[in-house]
């Protein structure tokens, strides 16, 4: 299983990698902490003050969207996408470089399509005026945010083409 090895060949984003991870890392840490706190406060509010937090469910939903998509660039940068290395040893060394490129193009394409469709969805939600049920929050800005982070992830996947093949044929198995 890859996933456990760090990036070979230095940071992918050069001197930008540290600030980038700092920013996204802090964002995800903050969001996850907020989801936890909100759930606890909601339950406590219900029992202690007989008053749950209004709109806790929908705010959790919005934070989940932000959390998942903000974590994706880091999942990718740290090579944490689950991959099966089982058959690596049987792939001829000659095709490996080409395969490396193809895999990253295909992965980037997947994230790219997700980003594009979220962008379209955000536009539709803006037009249709979709809001949350209790607090009547507008949903479209968050969906643009999700789309942007999916695009960043796609870009990272494409940039990773330049990197040396992480498995290098040795594989973990």
């Amino acid at each position: 299983m890859s996933g456990l090895s760090a990036n070979p060949g230095g940071p992918l984003l050069g001197r930008w990698e540290k600030p980038f991870e700092m920013l996204l890392g802090s964002a995800t840490a903050l969001i996850l902490a907020c989801i936890m706190l909100l759930t606890c406060v909601d339950v406590a509010g219900r029992y202690v003050f007989s008053e749950p937090v209004p709109g806790a469910l929908e705010v959790t939903e919005l934070m989940m969207g932000a959390l998942i998509f903000a974590s994706l660039p880091m999942v990718t940068l740290r090579n944490q996408q689950v991959t099966i290395d089982l058959f690596s040893p049987f792939i001829p060394a000659a095709v490996k470089p080409a395969l490396h490129v193809l895999i990253h193009v295909a992965s980037g394409l997947c994230m790219g399509v997700i980003s594009w469709r979220l962008w379209v969805k955000a536009g539709q939600m803006f037009e249709q005026g979709d809001t949350t049920a209790v607090l009547q929050l507008k949903v479209w800005p968050l969906v643009y945010f999700m789309s942007a982070l999916a695009a960043v992830t796609a870009a990272i996947l494409i940039l990773m083409i330049r990197q040396k093949d992480a498995a290098g044929g040795s594989g973990e198995v």
Binding site: L32, I35, L57, E58, M64, G65, F69, R117, V143, M146
Partner: peptide
Amino acid sequence: VGSVAFETGMSYTLSIVPL
């Protein structure tokens, strides 16, 4: 693809996983 990404990302029930 858009719906799945949106609905999976923004799910209350699934918040149980990160927690």
